[in-house]
Amino acid sequence: MEKTEFKFEDLKIYQRALDLVNIVYETCENFPNSENYNLTSQFKRASVSIALNIAEGSGDTDAQFNRFLQIALNSLKECVVCATIAERQNFIDSNRDILIREKLQELSKMITSLQKYLKKNTKN
Score class of each variant (00 low, 15 high):
1 M>Q: 10
1 M>Y: 08
1 M>L: 09
2 E>N: 14
2 E>Y: 06
3 K>M: 05
4 T>I: 08
4 T>A: 02
6 F>T: 03
6 F>K: 03
7 K>E: 14
7 K>W: 02
8 F>N: 00
10 D>S: 10
10 D>Q: 13
11 L>P: 02
11 L>A: 08
13 I>C: 01
13 I>D: 04
15 Q>D: 04
15 Q>N: 12
15 Q>T: 09
16 R>M: 12
17 A>M: 10
18 L>N: 13
18 L>G: 05
18 L>H: 13
19 D>I: 07
22 N>F: 11
23 I>A: 03
26 E>M: 00
30 N>M: 08
30 N>Y: 14
30 N>H: 15
30 N>S: 15
32 P>T: 02
33 N>K: 11
33 N>W: 03
35 E>N: 07
36 N>S: 08
36 N>P: 00
37 Y>C: 05
37 Y>E: 08
39 L>F: 08
39 L>K: 10
40 T>M: 08
43 F>P: 01
48 V>L: 15
48 V>C: 12
48 V>D: 12
49 S>A: 14
50 I>R: 07
50 I>S: 11
51 A>H: 09
52 L>A: 14
53 N>P: 07
55 A>H: 01
56 E>V: 06
57 G>S: 03
57 G>D: 03
58 S>Y: 13
61 T>E: 08
62 D>G: 07
62 D>S: 12
63 A>L: 14
64 Q>A: 11
65 F>R: 14
65 F>E: 10
65 F>Q: 14
66 N>G: 09
67 R>P: 04
67 R>D: 11
70 Q>S: 10
71 I>A: 05
73 L>R: 12
75 S>L: 01
75 S>T: 05
75 S>Y: 05
76 L>D: 05
77 K>I: 13
78 E>S: 08
79 C>F: 02
79 C>H: 02
80 V>H: 10
81 V>M: 11
81 V>E: 11
81 V>K: 12
83 A>F: 06
83 A>E: 13
83 A>V: 10
86 A>H: 09
86 A>P: 07
88 R>F: 13
89 Q>Y: 11
89 Q>V: 11
89 Q>W: 06
89 Q>H: 09
90 N>G: 01
92 I>Q: 01
95 N>T: 15
97 D>K: 13
97 D>S: 14
97 D>M: 13
98 I>V: 11
98 I>T: 15
98 I>G: 02
98 I>Y: 13
99 L>S: 09
100 I>A: 02
101 R>A: 05
103 K>A: 08
105 Q>N: 11
107 L>H: 01
108 S>V: 00
108 S>I: 02
109 K>S: 04
109 K>L: 03
111 I>K: 00
113 S>Y: 02
114 L>W: 00
115 Q>R: 12
115 Q>C: 07
116 K>H: 06
117 Y>A: 04
118 L>F: 04
118 L>E: 02
120 K>S: 10
122 T>S: 11
122 T>K: 12
122 T>Y: 08
123 K>L: 01
123 K>R: 13
